[in-house]
Every structure is written in structure tokens, then in C-alpha cells.
């Protein structure tokens, strides 16, 4: 081990002038999992943004003639409807892609908001301590002990579920974890010499938090937040499935799958194909997220 540390200065010197965050990125980018995940993700993103606009297929128009068409690889399927059609003759792929677009939008927005809210409160709590800390931590304790799903359906079940309320519910349930993590890292960071140095120079608390602590504390947390984007997509889909997500006719993974459940025995592809697309999307995000997380661990702890 001692020999390890003795030799550890070589790569450090080779990477002169590179911040931790950039090192982590470089590390992650070199991982196979990240590359595959990024590739798939970009293709899906492009498809979700461009395809529904570019094709003539409507996602809401009902066409009795084209009901229950199977995917192209089954008998009776056609290349016009790659993933088949649903009980109302709508193209499943297009509907799923719109669903993906909605899911990505909702989860990205909610993760960004919960990150800002949670990490912000966490840094304040960890840096100031005292009563702010006590109150905030008890509050997160309380919130963490109510399962998200109960909270979500309680709120969404009675309000009119739309993009705004769904994002609000996800943020409301997600911020305590970010607050906890940011707080514990801040607690450690606050003890560091450079914070003391800044205070000796006369820097105010706000300045120390914004200029010194936040740039050091936030990037590693943001790295792991990528995994949460996938988690939030699952929740969004689950809400749709239970019937408290964005309401039809706007397609979401959840309501497409829920609608198709009735036909699962005879027309299995209706709930399954959208699910597969969702899984591929989740997989791509999770692969990127895990790679980022591993890169972070490698840089931080040498694991």
C-alpha cells in the first residue's frame, strides 16, 4: 500500500491542471458500459424528438381497420407499424416514443429540481448546523419514513394529474435523500482547511458555501443523480399505470401499458412492446449512471 501511495503521484502529475470532476468524466468515458449506454440513449433521444414529428403516423387518430396489428417480425405485421398497433389501431412505436419524450422530460425536470432543492438545503443544514440542521434532519427522517407511493397517490389521486403536479410529487419525495447526502458531505467539507482558510481571509458564510463548498460537493452528487433520472421514469410510468399519471389521450408508458393489460392474453405486444422500449431507455441511462458512479468511486476512494 505504501508503495502504491509512493507511486500515485505519477498519474497525478501527468494530469496536470485537471479538476476532479473532469478526471471523473474522463474515467467514466473510458468505460465500455458508459459508451454503450450513451450510444443507445442518443439514438432513443433522437428518435423520440424527431420521429413522431417526421412521420405521418398519428398517435391519437383511431383507425379501426388497423387494430391489433402485431409487430413486424410476427406474421401479419408490417414495416409500417414496427411495433404493431393497439386496440384502437394507433401505432405503438410512435405512442411509446412520445411516452418516452414525456417520461424523459418529467424525470429530468424533477431530478434537476430535487437536486437543487435537496442539495441546497443540505449544504445550508450541514454548514450552519444547530437548529436549522436539527429541524431539517427530523423533517427528512419523517419524510423518508412515508413510502413515496403512498404520498404520490394521495396527492395525485385528488389533484388533476398533469406534468406540473407529477413533477411536484416526485420532487417532494426525492429531495430528502439529496439533502442528507449533501449535508453529510458538507459536514466533512466544512472541516477542511481551505474553508478555515477562507474564513480567516474574511469570507462570509454565504460566500464560503457558494464559492468554496458547492463547487466541490455538488458534482459527485450530480453524477449519481443520473441514476435517479431512470428511477423517476419508473415512477412516472407506475403512476400512469395506476391511473394517476398524465391522463390519456396523451401517451405515457404507464397508460399505454395499463390500457393494453386487458388484451395481454391475445395481443401480448400491446403492453409488452412499450415496456421493452422503456427498459432499453432505462438500461441506457442506468449504464451511464453506474459508470459515472464507479468513476467517482475510483477517483475518490481508489476502488
Amino acid at each position: 500500500m505504501a508503495a502504491e501511495t509512493a507511486s500515485a503521484d505519477i498519474p497525478a502529475r501527468a494530469m496536470r491542471g485537471e479538476t476532479m470532476t473532469r478526471r471523473m468524466f474522463r474515467q467514466a468515458r473510458s468505460m465500455r458500459g458508459f459508451q454503450i449506454g450513451l450510444g443507445i440513449f442518443l439514438v432513443l433521444l433522437l428518435a423520440a424528438v424527431v420521429l413522431p414529428e417526421a412521420t405521418s403516423l398519428s398517435v391519437t387518430k383511431i383507425s379501426v381497420k388497423e387494430r391489433f396489428l402485431p409487430p413486424f417480425f410476427l406474421e401479419g405485421g408490417s414495416l409500417a407499424h414496427l411495433a404493431g398497433t393497439d386496440q384502437l389501431g394507433r401505432d405503438l412505436l410512435m405512442r411509446s416514443l412520445i411516452g418516452l419524450r414525456n417520461a424523459l422530460g418529467i424525470s429530468a425536470a424533477s431530478v434537476i429540481l430535487m437536486f437543487v432543492l435537496g442539495a441546497g438545503l443540505g449544504i445550508i443544514s450541514g454548514y450552519w448546523g444547530r437548529w436549522v440542521d436539527t429541524i431539517l434532519m427530523r423533517f427528512t427522517d419523517a419524510q423518508l419514513s412515508v413510502p413515496l407511493i403512498v404520498l404520490a397517490i394521495t396527492i395525485l389521486g385528488v389533484t388533476r394529474p398533469n406534468f406540473g403536479t407529477i413533477i411536484a410529487v416526485l420532487v417532494l419525495s426525492g429531495w430528502p435523500i439529496y439533502a442528507r447526502v449533501a449535508r453529510s458531505v458538507t459536514l466533512a467539507e466544512r472541516q477542511r482547511e481551505y474553508v478555515r482558510g477562507a474564513k480567516i481571509l474574511g469570507a462570509s458564510d454565504i460566500r464560503v458555501m457558494l464559492v468554496m463548498i458547492a463547487p466541490n460537493v455538488l458534482p459527485p452528487i450530480a453524477f449519481v443523480a443520473v441514476l435517479d433520472v431512470a428511477r423517476m421514469m419508473i415512477f412516472e410510468a407506475l403512476f400512469g399505470f395506476i391511473g394517476i399519471g398524465v391522463q390519456p389521450p396523451t401517451p405515457t408508458f404507464g397508460n399505454i401499458i395499463a390500457d393494453g393489460t386487458k388484451y395481454i392474453v391475445n395481443y401480448w405486444w400491446i403492453p409488452t412492446m412499450p415496456g421493452l422500449l422503456l427498459i432499453v431507455a432505462l438500461l441506457s441511462i442506468n449504464m451511464m449512471g453506474s459508470a459515472l458512479e464507479r468513476a467517482r468511486n475510483k477517483i475518490f476512494a481508489g476502488i
Binding site: I234, A237, G275, L278, L282
Partner: peptide, 19 residues
């Protein structure tokens, strides 16, 4: 471990239940 984890965490529970 990495790939098993990534795969399983990408399976939405309600969809898996249906399948």
C-alpha cells in the same frame, strides 16, 4: 455484478409483474 445490477434496476416492477 455491474451488468446484473444495471439490468435488474431497469425493469419496472409493474411491467415485470405483468409479463
Amino acid at each position: 455484478a455491474f451488468f446484473t445490477g444495471s439490468l435488474l434496476i431497469s425493469l419496472p416492477n409493474f411491467w415485470l409483474a405483468l409479463v
